[in-house]
Nucleic acid binder design. Sequence first.
DNA 1: TAAGGTTCTGTTTTT
DNA 2: CAGAACCTTA
Length: 739
Amino acid sequence: MSDLLANLNPEQLQAVTLPPQHALVLAGAGSGKTRVLTTRIAWLVQTGQVDPQGVLAVTFTNKAAKELLARLSAMLPLSFNRSARGMWIGTFHGLCNRLLRAHHRDAGLPQLFQILDSGDQLAAIKRLLKALNVDDEKFPPRELQHFINGQKEAGLRPHAVEAWDDYTRRRVELYIEYESQCQRESVVDFAELLLRTYELLERNEPIRKHYQQRFRHILVDEFQDTNRLQYRWLKLLADAGRDSAANLFCVGDDDQSIYRFRGADVGNMRDFEREFHVANVIRLEQNYRSHGNILDAANAIIGHNAGRLGKNLWTERGAGEPIRVFEACGDLDEARWIVDEIQSLVRDGMSRSAIALLYRSNAQSRVLEHQLFSSGISYRVYGGLRFFERQEIKHALAYLRLIANPDDDTAFSRVVNFPTRGIGARSIEALQDAARTWNSSLYAAVPHLAGKPGTVLAQFVRLVEDLRRDTAKLPLPELVDHVLDASGLRNHFRNEKEGQERLENLDELINAAANFVAEAGVQADAQDMAHALLADFLAHASLEAGEHQADAGSDAVQLMTVHSSKGLEFDAVFLSGLEEGLFPHENSILETEGLEEERRLMYVAVTRARQRLYLSFAQSRMLHGQTRYNLRSRFLEEIPEELTKWLSPPNPRTSAVRSGFGGYYQPSRGGAAKAAEPPVSRSRDLGGLRVGQLVTHAKFGQGVIVAAEGSGSDARLQINFGAAGVKWLMLAVAKLDPA
DNA sequence: TAAGGTTCTGTTTTT
DNA sequence: CAGAACCTTA
């Protein structure tokens, strides 16, 4: 026990040993958040305050859930580990899946319901729109997907949605259609997993009571990332408002809330504090990761946000090195400089894997990769396709899904003609008509079809039937293996030019199935359960898309977006592309909310660094095939000067205008902004000025010349004045001075 | 039906 | 610029 609590700082100790009550722990970056969470659970169990069965721990990612479990087992004596199985540790979606499988009848679902990932959901929506002859120009599938998920996350079924205009009314109708399609096909999307479970618990008192009494301690990780529905879900489970309420222990950091764009609501933290009467909010502010200068910069940056819960990171380590800032002429120069610095770091003995290269958007990785590659530095990029999202894997999974549930039209459509078997758009259309007439799935509609399409389709149905029959008694890995052959997938990729890697991935799917069986701890030889186990495996594939593709192992520089860097730390961090319009991103810059989220993102980026932080930006950058001239990011200005050291001479030219915010340059296609003009046109007389140059205007202040038209007395210049906006000015009229 | 050409459109991302 | 989505042709 004393071991368990040793080396905790006073605040951590306070949080870990809090008497049973609701608690909110504001855990700053690098303050030992996971440690507090795991130690809290271990302490509760070891002191006998709760049975393992009484513990529910919720995380956002599978990775976090795994880490929690791993660290917990390391803390608890072996005797506890056996009973640790009684704990429920998982993601919101994973736990909901578990609840819905257990109570599928009460939830109105067949036992073998399938889960749609976002790609599947989008495909389902497209199919729906087509079937209903809806103009997808007017109702873009992505937008509709967003709408439906948004309503579900607000806990609203179609009848509860308030629709004041025709457009929304139509979208609600489509929401209704979408729901019935899902129900008909026995599929459930991510938001539905949560909403269904919420409704189940809300309506079914015995089930609700059962879980409310079972879970005495509910612990939530990354609480700032919860959406409204997830919060309500927690409230319901914790039986809020009653004396018998379970204890909710929420850990999070409002300053690291960076998923607003997908529904996360930081407001949950405030609401939680109020609605659960949280007596004392515990702040973990001692940072064990970074040197002082880095923390001071982070604190200064985040200090520009309003309405924070309030928190200031500090460290016992010294100030450390200054933050290095570099201004490059172009994105290529920036990349070159970064690679040079990396080389010298490595020469000085830093391992490549301790170095991270962060950027705001994925498009920025290309130049960096190119430069690293030509310098022979090994690197790995996060954020590629994930295993279960690969095309060949999706196809294989679709066959497996048809075995578990032939009414899954998404799966049916995906593989009915893959590998090609002469079933084209025409046949599918006829089949869809039939399905509508008989109000059935595509699969069930096949027998109603006559003629040639009927024959080929009947063959496909026979194939699926054979698969079902032949696999009914097979252990899962063999089942998968059989399907790969019998479906013709293997053969198809064998004949494809670049099919080798795909074949290997298909084999990897068999391994994944074997691993799943091993980890799930089920008897692979539970013969009659073959298809039930298959459904579990498919749910696993949807809920956990696998590692982001990146070659693990070797000592390589880490490249990723700032978003994916959350939770990680590195000795040296390069943050590139610190330019207005890029970071903060132009789409987020207009409203305060968006801008503040960008700032939190900046805060996350800065706090990834242990010893050394490099910030860089470029005067010009290739984006979407156009050269853009940006001002440097306002976030740079938010760092106190004394913390930084400029590796390039400080240049007022690119300085973001300090007098105000909101200005940025937004290129518009086909509009007046012609940013693609070559930077310098020698034949053109611009009165000694050139594109990319910084000028001062009496009224608008400082700006960058973004484009030019005409020459001599006709010359017009487009200038980005930052806060004052982007203007076209006549050179002869405007009073411009080189800055 | 499938290959090959053209147009379009560009954050962030987990489940 | 580059990938996806769309459209035309053999």
